[in-house]
Design a protein around this nucleic acid. Structure first.
Lengths: 116, 116
DNA sequence: GTAAAAAGTTAGACATGGCTAACTTATCTA
DNA sequence: TAGATAAGTTAGCCATGTCTAACTTTTTAC
């Protein structure tokens, strides 16, 4: 869960300037109370900083994790696309696959991408 | 969950002659009570047949699902191996990845395997 | 500047999947 | 065949992640 959240929060801050629960809820396909609860958990885990009713920010640890996740996500999507898979499917499958790809496998994906 | 269980049950029946909770627990890395509970759920879902304290059998629906899962598992592992990933990592990653691979992506994997 | 709308939170419920402790049933073995 | 061991179950707990209903806070728009 944490990975999906920090990844999305980083993206929202970059593209929208800030990360708001309502946006997160829409993007993840969950309801606002779920986001509230999960953001509290991320805060407890030291990944986000946040005051009630305000926008959400990533801590340094959160940013590091987000960076790793986003990079991995990009590699997985690019790899699937390189197999001729359509963009929508590649995005959807990557969302599920990325959390189970070891460093070894990720490197193999990158090697394959580079050698083409 | 169901997929991991029926896949393993099918494999145990094939290699050991029967599927026993203690084996399932070991292979999945969980404790026996967890297996008991999950087997009840599989029974409720119509995937397995079973009397208390006896071995576990797959229903027709369970066998169909197991067949799909095992075939998909084999494809994912073979694909990872074809990328030069070591067997242990391929098995471990496949376990996580296989549940998130769409039909489209699975076909892409197979295409790639066949064209080599 | 206030009232309405939007956003966010709290409380409480539910399903899933895991655990330990304690018990029952089955199997093995002396 | 009886006692010990192994296997399986039951009961009850916990964490995660989801939801709805009701409430509060913030923002927006007159």
């Amino acid at each position: 869960m944490a990975e999906d959240y920090v990844e999305l929060i980083a993206e929202l801050i970059e593209t929208r300037g800030e990360a708001r629960p309502v946006e997160i809820a829409e993007r993840l396909g969950v309801k606002p109370p779920t986001v509230t609860k999960n953001i509290s958990r991320l805060k407890a885990a030291g990944l986000v900083r946040r005051e009630p009713y305000r926008a959400i920010f990533l801590t340094d640890a959160g940013q590091d994790l987000a960076e790793i996740c986003r990079r991995r996500h990009r590699v997985v999507v690019a790899f699937l696309l390189s197999l001729g898979i359509d963009e929508e499917t590649a995005e959807r499958d990557a969302e599920g696959i990325e959390h189970h790809v070891s460093g070894t496998t990720l490197e193999a994906f990158e090697r394959r991408l580079n050698q083409k």
